[in-house]
Design a protein around this nucleic acid. Structure first.
Lengths: 251, 251
DNA sequence: TTTATTCGTGCATATTCGTGCAATTTCATG
DNA sequence: CATGAAATTGCACGAATATGCACGAATAAA
């Protein structure tokens, strides 16, 4: 049995049984416990499972979950969100992408005039439960759990019927020449479609995402209307975006 | 049983039952009380629960009066949910209506086999973020804020394409002759449509909803497959439903 | 107060872990 | 093909962890 193959089997087992007991698996595979332990250690180092005494458990139970991620780095996100709300006008249809930065934006959307918010993120929708003046349209689809947004054919179809005035796009990486990218191909496809439908697209970009690239490209730089960026970022790092005609809103 | 796994189970128990009795759990897990005590001590040190003489309680800064009241209220919901999960089989497509009782059900859905959950409630969807084996389909639409479910034409269209095996319907009132009802007409229309599409429909009915009527009728009694009801309710109050051919699952 | 649980600590035992090491296989490079 | 490097695997052994038991202290109940 190949090492990689064995690791894949371990991950299958973990998904199937919800846990792995090192000793039992070693017997079943007719290998020393050391080998299994080593595999588990390495898989844990890759963040694929949760190593515990006696075996391993799935990552989900105590992975820094969405709620935790919301708390960290909230300072910069708050500032970006505060600046971004100035882009919203009465009566507009906004489209809010998923992600913690957009969740911060959802929490501080204006309450003194009416507008429509479209989102494919149930988390964002839940944030807007208490909002007095926002009409919320939730887009359905298969939920991509990692980032908690609806994706797939159902979502795409619903997007095709909408023409949002303003789209707040969420990405995990931004690069002047490589464009904007995210972690999942399917998610990227949905984002790309929304960009095409929307009259304008803005990105709230925390500084750690600058000059990076993620696996799945969303759109090229020239598709984006503007970026909301912290004013602690040196202007030189943004010159590449300005050259592409992207507007900058410093926060 | 792995140590970490056991601790997770204890936390689950605490969430479900609102309390842990060390001796009882030790017997159930067939372990010495020492081990359970040690676990509880460590969980308490992590700030995850409140260690008390004889067991543990959730961390709730609430006033004791209010706390016990909500615990008792949610106690019934937990029991109904625990009974209802037995209705779920591998590979099924469930439809979960909105509401706090169904949210309780979502939290304890089986984690050892796969199934599909359809919901038009972003709150329910958010509850299922951490679920390892559930494929979640979110239905879109305009959000009716009071109960946080998607309603309207978009939702209706999406429902029309689905044939769920099992629908857990939420209502605010149940009456043997008047049928089942809820507060909002538009919401009732959506519920009615799901009942028509689903192969079977069950209602988790807390005792305070019995023999009452709300403004908007959802369906007549004979449209419902079964009710999940607390076993503290006298059988006489349920005779009317049984006469209509409704199955009863006592919890 | 008395009595019965429950708790915490110390200790013994068994299991599991990590590291270093050697034997073997596989890979890369010339 | 040859040869050295890298990876894989099992074993040994000391360290860390988990568990149950005993016993005196603390707590709740009567």
């Amino acid at each position: 049995m190949l090492t990689t193959e064995r690791k894949a089997l371990l991950m299958d087992r973990l998904r199937r049984d919800g846990r792995i007991v090192a000793k039992a698996i070693a017997e079943e595979f007719m290998l020393s416990e050391d080998t299994i332990r080593r595999d588990l250690r390495e898989l844990a180092a890759e963040g694929l499972l949760n190593r515990v005494h006696g075996g391993a458990l799935p990552i989900s139970p105590d992975l820094p979950d969405f709620a935790t991620r919301t708390r960290i780095e909230s300072d910069e996100k708050q500032r970006l969100a505060s600046a971004a709300v100035t882009l919203v006008s009465p009566g507009q249809m906004l489209f809010l992408d998923g992600g913690t930065t957009n969740a911060a934006l959802a929490r501080i959307l204006p309450r003194h005039f009416a507008f429509t918010v479209v989102t494919h993120s149930p988390t964002i929708a839940a944030e807007l439960e208490q909002h007095p003046t926002a009409e919320v349209i939730l887009l359905g689809g298969r939920l991509y759990k990692h980032s908690m947004v609806a994706v797939g054919a159902m979502t795409a179809e619903a997007i095709g019927r909408l023409r949002p005035d303003l789209f707040f796009l969420g990405v995990t990486a931004a690069h002047p020449t490589e464009g904007f990218s995210t972690g999942d191909i399917e998610e990227a496809a949905i984002k790309r479609q929304i960009v095409q439908q929307a009259a304008s697209t803005w990105i709230l970009l925390t500084s750690n995402k600058l000059d990076a690239a993620s696996p799945a490209n969303v759109v090229a730089s020239d598709q984006i209307t503007g970026l909301v960026v912290s004013n602690t970022v040196e202007a030189s790092r943004l010159a590449g975006f300005e050259a592409k005609g992207i507007r900058l809103l410093r926060a």
